[in-house]
């Protein structure tokens, strides 16, 4: 079984690669959007405490445990054509999957960004203050100082979305040449009893994860 799976990958089947590309596209887009949203929130939470901060953190932490199918269901009930946002015709499009995956990855990235920034050495903040560093320059320096931890946050978010199946299946519809991703294909092929293709895609998923992690860590190390 494993040999045939490897065979499928090596032979360079066009559909297999299209599916892998689609997965990667969705996961990268949603991780980037989530990070753009989570970074400001993380900075706000760690540098400018406000009333209700604890509540926000508790909420974020709880949302990390939200099952993917629940997110799929919630978003479905918002974007179905008979629902409030139905007229935008988002259901069963790549945008729908990305919206779901942003909701999925935002809490985890935001929590980890907050924890990375709040665990910084207090001396650093004091130094910055005495140097008179203000505004966005201060944020940039802080982000730069904790970039390894931030990278872990980003990768955790990426890992959560590239491996999920509930959101992609419910909101994307597993449409061939459009919204079919690695995980939805694995679900489909397993249900058809075609374990070889499912296994081949599973291997690709692992390789993608390894590559993305490796590339990012490698860049950090040598910069």
């Amino acid at each position: 079984m494993l040999a045939r799976a490897v065979d499928l990958i090596v032979s360079g089947d066009r559909e297999v690669f299209f599916i892998a590309f689609t997965s990667l596209k969705f996961a990268l887009s949603s991780t980037i959007i989530s990070t753009c949203l989570a970074l400001p929130l993380g900075l706000l939470l760690s540098l400018h405490p406000f009333r209700g901060k604890k509540l926000v953190i508790i909420t974020l932490n709880s949302l990390m445990a939200l099952p993917t199918v629940v997110i799929g269901l919630l978003v479905y009930s918002l974007i179905s054509r008979s629902a409030p946002l139905g007229r935008y015709e988002l259901l069963f499009t790549p945008s729908a999957v990305i919206i779901g995956q942003v909701i999925l990855s935002f809490p985890i990235i935001a929590s980890l960004v907050y924890s990375a920034l709040s665990h910084m050495e207090p001396e650093l903040l004091e130094t910055l203050d005495t140097l008179g560093t203000r505004g966005y320059r201060k944020y940039i320096l802080l982000i730069n100082e904790s970039k390894i931890a931030l990278l872990s946050a980003l990768l955790s978010g990426f890992g959560r979305v590239i491996g999920e199946v509930g959101v992609s299946m419910m909101l994307g519809g597993n449409i061939r040449w459009y919204t079919r991703t690695i995980t939805t294909t694995i679900a489909l092929e397993t249900s058809k009893g075609d374990f070889e293709l499912a296994l081949a895609l599973g291997i690709i998923l692992i390789v993608i994860s390894l590559t993305v992690n490796f590339l990012l860590h490698w860049r950090i190390r040598y910069e």
Partner: peptide
């Protein structure tokens, strides 16, 4: 035209039709 196939059980297919999602 491009046909998007959403393969589900008959019951769910009918629900999707009712909701206007297909």
């Amino acid at each position: 035209m491009k046909v998007d196939v959403i393969a589900v059980g008959t019951g769910k297919a009918i629900t999707l039709g009712k909701n206007g999602d297909v």
